[in-house]
Amino acid sequence: MSNDNGYLVEVKDLKEHFPVRTGFFEKTMLKAVDGVSFQIKPGETLGLVGESGCGKTTVGRTLLHLYKPTGGQILFEGEEVTENNINEYRKKMQMVFQDPYSSLNPRMIVEDIIGEPLDVHKLYSSKGERREKILGLMETVGLNAEHATRYAHEFSGGQRQRIGIARALAVNPKFIVCDEPVSALDVSIQAQVINMFEDLQKKLGMAYLFIAHDLLIVKHISDRIAVMYLGRIVEIGDADEVYHSPKHPYTVSLLSAVPIPDPKTAKERQRIILSGDVPSPMNLPSGCAFRTRCPYATEKCAAECPSLTDRGDGHMVACWNK
């Protein structure tokens, strides 16, 4: 392993700009992700939160080269992942998708959905071995082996998500991007599936990039948390640190929406209720993208975009005032 700093995944200044047709001849660049950097250690979970539309999904997909990055670097075990060598990494990095309905092919049976990674990478020597592996995977994610020959549309949302997880696990990945894997599920099932993610991590030791728009879910499962706003990370740090002493006004505002069971903490905590709409990612404000909704915004915020600076113990915040 040519890995000198111990990181499994390292993302440096990742950018993903989508060309969007705005007129008959005009094209504008939609900056879905604009300079995102983070690191994930083996076996660690990084939670990624932010409002919907802030570019979380795009980060996850670009990380796996499902979209061609506009700029930046992705390193896996210290080696740069590029378009040319991505196939080697398809076995090491996997993804669980947000929508359990559109992420499973309705014309395939469960066995073939879970078996597809095995087929693609030829991970078996006989039909029997293939079946054995598939049944093993189904058991791992808590699916009934009798359901192997059923079509995906016959399952409930939670069961479908388990099928998607089994598919991701089939190649024994070291890293899984979980893109809001529970947000489409019933609240009663969300906890089950999240616990399963935790159990699987304990058992198999892979790292997660766990995307959610709900801070509570992320806090529960993550070692570290990154908060995203309009294509950039505004705060990243230890999960407890970010949750209990948030620095960036945006993180504070996200937490203000979370009910706090302990009245003492509730009183101490500062609250920010956001007003105004999220600006369009096609027409970002100058300087700090958050300044249009920020109660502390100054002239400096409009002039220059703050970068992440360390506030101790790797707790990084991108804000001029806090």
Partner: peptide, 20 residues
């Protein structure tokens, strides 16, 4: 549909994705 992305992230080639 996300299942096409899923197939890509698995490493399936275009021919396979079209066919399957």
């Amino acid at each position: 549909n996300e299942y096409v992305l899923a197939a890509q992230s698995i490493g399936a080639k275009s021919g396979r994705i079209i066919k399957r």
